[in-house]
Design a protein around this nucleic acid. Sequence first.
DNA 1: CAATCTAATGCTACAATGTTGCATCAAAAA
DNA 2: TTTTTGATGCAACATTGTAGCATTAGATTG
Lengths: 156, 156
Amino acid sequence: MPAYRPSTPPPPPPASARELITAHGGRVTRTRVAVIDVLLGSQHPLSHDEIAAALDGEHIAHDRVTLYRALEWLVEQGIAQRIASGERAWRFEIRRGGEHRHAHFHCERCGQILCLEDVPTPASAPLPPGFAVERAELVLHGACAACGRHAQKGEQ
Amino acid sequence: MPAYRPSTPPPPPPASARELITAHGGRVTRTRVAVIDVLLGSQHPLSHDEIAAALDGEHIAHDRVTLYRALEWLVEQGIAQRIASGERAWRFEIRRGGEHRHAHFHCERCGQILCLEDVPTPASAPLPPGFAVERAELVLHGACAACGRHAQKGEQ
DNA sequence: CAATCTAATGCTACAATGTTGCATCAAAAA
DNA sequence: TTTTTGATGCAACATTGTAGCATTAGATTG
């Protein structure tokens, strides 16, 4: 599923997995490279499970725990970010273009997540004194086009 | 922890647990009443665990599964709503004052959730054709006043 | 009030999603 | 090549939530 971006220019091409890892002082390992490649190749955030399936599809051996730890490291290093997307499992996406943070759409019928590249997450809000916002998550829940059509048919 | 509302008037007093339950055609049971009372008494969303602890504190016997089911029912009936608040567990809060939907602040140091009564969740956004938004969740992550102070001390 | 009906409970077992500990391996450095 | 230690891979465990099903008790009826 592609990201929906009605007008903005495409983001800059991301660095290679190897570059990303060494730039952060990490070791270049099979699982890390494969995970980054999978995330780079996806236009929407992926769950641990979906990433594991992608690795299986490419016949890249991997351990469940190692995969969790690779993802954890990517988030720690700021290479990827975690999204709490309505379902119980986290989803992960590569951070593209610096501090850019967009909202997400979650289809409650089919579970898909779509990046809303042109909907920014609000960076500030009236907060009590002393509170500091570091990041924001905005998730819109509803029905995607395909699921909306199905529902209409069913309701007639 | 109270909600932060710099200017708005207080919300209308909510109905009693008994009223809420019977109005939705449900049976008035010990766990349902207790859960609603706990949620009504809290100014911020509570996790299953926190609710269970509150019931324990009042020596109200309850079953783990029954508690999950009571919460599920409250959400189904629109009496309460679920929030995916950064941690792995759902949090629940009573829906006060009709369709009002506010943002939440999540302190990543101490885990607390604060209701931002005066920060509305955006209800619309530029979406692909056919997509329909039913609800939105906005969570700001960062450090609350207390945790921010601790961090400063530690950094000196 | 007693009898009835069935929603809701309270068990047990299970499922999904992560996490911890630790011996071993291999990526990078010397 | 050898050394160092970050990262892996395995087993066990923890947390959070669900499913199945016999039993209980809230509401209704007589």
